[in-house]
Simulated scan of single mutants.
Amino acid sequence: MAKENERATILVTGPARSGKSEWAERLAHESGRSVVYIATAREDPEDADWMARIAAHRQRRPAHWSTRCAPTELETAIATAGTGDVCLLVDSLGTWVANLIELSDADWRARCAHLLDALEDRPAAQVILVAEETGWGVIPAYPIGRLFRDRLGGLVRRLGPRCAATYLVAGGHALDLRRLGVPIDR
């Protein structure tokens, strides 16, 4: 990992089943730090497919990594997870957005601001955020789908410029968008 990323936030984004989580896990392992995995998923024993996905993530993680579950209180988990020189791996922002989809626009903006503050207040930690890319296809037919797409897309866009590295994982490759891309001024 590049020297400038040692104490920085890294964003790993891409479509479903692209390898985002595996790339983020690799970055966390290569950090050489104590890793705290912050899981945003809520378990649902009635959904066998969802539980199998959670189990696959758990099985890939080394036993010495600690795990914190933060389906809604991600900001607090980031602010309080581990002490000192740690690597926080947050998987995933899309699930966190889905868990908070019922918030009003004002409450959602406030939560995003708190998340950004929590990230800035962890200077000794490396934070790796996994986020899904949505909106690369058709516009969702339902309002809740459009709201999710817009909130996650807006959050990822706000995070990208603040990150030391932003990776797009697609087709089995991770591309460093900070090195290859051109920033879009807002």
Rank of each mutant, 00 (worst) to 15 (best):
P15Q: 14
S18A: 14
S18G: 11
S21H: 10
E22S: 15
A24N: 06
A24I: 04
E25P: 01
L27W: 02
A28W: 06
H29K: 15
E30L: 14
G32I: 04
S34N: 13
Y37H: 03
I38M: 05
T40W: 03
R42H: 08
E43T: 13
E43C: 09
E43S: 15
E43I: 02
P45M: 07
D47P: 08
D47Y: 08
D47M: 01
D47F: 06
D49S: 14
W50Y: 14
R53K: 14
R53C: 01
A55M: 10
A55N: 12
A56H: 15
H57Q: 12
R58A: 08
Q59I: 11
Q59L: 15
R60N: 05
P62S: 10
P62V: 08
W65T: 02
T67S: 09
C69S: 15
C69A: 15
A70I: 07
A70T: 01
T72F: 01
E75A: 15
T76R: 15
A77C: 08
I78A: 00
A79P: 00
A79H: 03
T80V: 07
A81Q: 03
A81E: 02
G82I: 01
T83G: 13
T83C: 11
G84Q: 08
G84W: 06
D85Q: 12
L88M: 02
L89P: 01
L89D: 00
V90F: 05
G94S: 10
G94I: 07
G94P: 03
W96N: 04
V97H: 10
N99K: 02
I101E: 07
I101F: 02
I101V: 10
E102Y: 02
E102H: 13
E102D: 15
L103S: 08
S104P: 04
D105S: 09
D107N: 08
D107W: 03
R109L: 13
C112S: 07
C112W: 03
C112P: 00
A113Y: 01
H114I: 08
L115H: 05
L116R: 13
D117I: 07
D117T: 12
D117F: 05
A118G: 01
A118P: 03
L119R: 09
E120R: 14
E120N: 14
R122D: 06
A125I: 07
Q126D: 04
